[in-house]
């Protein structure tokens, strides 16, 4: 009788520990550290400086007129759903550091009238390249065009991605950045914030 009772307890233990582990960790970024700059020219260490918060990150370049603004809009919609909460940080990280200087990112942020807990990050090309590799975001120049003022402008093919980091800098959700219905992201965040 005693051994049967112990078996029962073991089964209950296995059941509850296997069912309440939270979302699967896709990538652990807690051992990574990237020195980046925000739109105000302030130094930031990603993801270290955001530990203790959920971080919703979109990957963009500001010369992208269609897909990247959709990614940014989706982040803004999520932010609005939560009424700019203190425990969630929103980030747009550029994969085009050559053109997306802090000043350019500041202007870009200004287009969307964003709150303080929404930052845009850039860095030197090497750092951005390493950061993008670590989150499996790909980008490449697709074609260039010569403008009427004889300046060359290039466009990029790129991963279309939004991801969510938990408070320990672990990637727990990834989405198609421009096409994912915002309420999917909101519901996932609500689930983990409970």
């Amino acid at each position: 009788m005693k051994s049967q009772f112990l078996s029962f307890i073991c089964i209950l233990f296995i059941f509850f520990t296997s069912c309440n582990t939270g979302p699967k960790v896709i990538d652990d970024l807690s051992d990574k550290s990237f020195n980046v700059i925000n739109q105000n020219g302030e130094s930031v260490t990603f993801p270290d400086d955001y530990q203790g918060k959920y971080v919703v990150v979109g990957f963009i370049y500001t010369n992208c007129p269609d897909i990247c603004p959709l990614v940014t809009q989706n982040l803004i919609k999520v932010q609005k759903e939560f009424n700019s909460p203190d425990d969630i940080q929103f980030l747009g990280i550029t994969f085009d550091p050559k053109r997306d200087t802090p000043e350019v990112l500041k202007n870009y942020k200004g287009l969307f009238n964003l709150d303080d807990n929404f930052d845009f990050l850039t860095a030197d090309s090497t750092t951005i390249s390493e950061l993008m590799d670590s989150v499996r975001v790909r980008s490449q120049v697709s074609f260039t065009q010569v403008r009427e003022d004889d300046k060359e402008v290039y466009f990029m093919n790129h991963s279309d991605k939004i991801m969510v980091l938990d408070k320990k800098s672990r990637v727990i959700f990834e989405y198609g950045g421009s096409m994912t219905p915002v309420n999917y992201i909101v519901e996932d965040l609500k689930t983990v914030r409970k």
Binding site: D66, F155, D160
Partner: peptide
Amino acid sequence: SYTTEDGLAGMR
């Protein structure tokens, strides 16, 4: 805007 063969967001 379109999706390239290797799954990237592209524009042409």
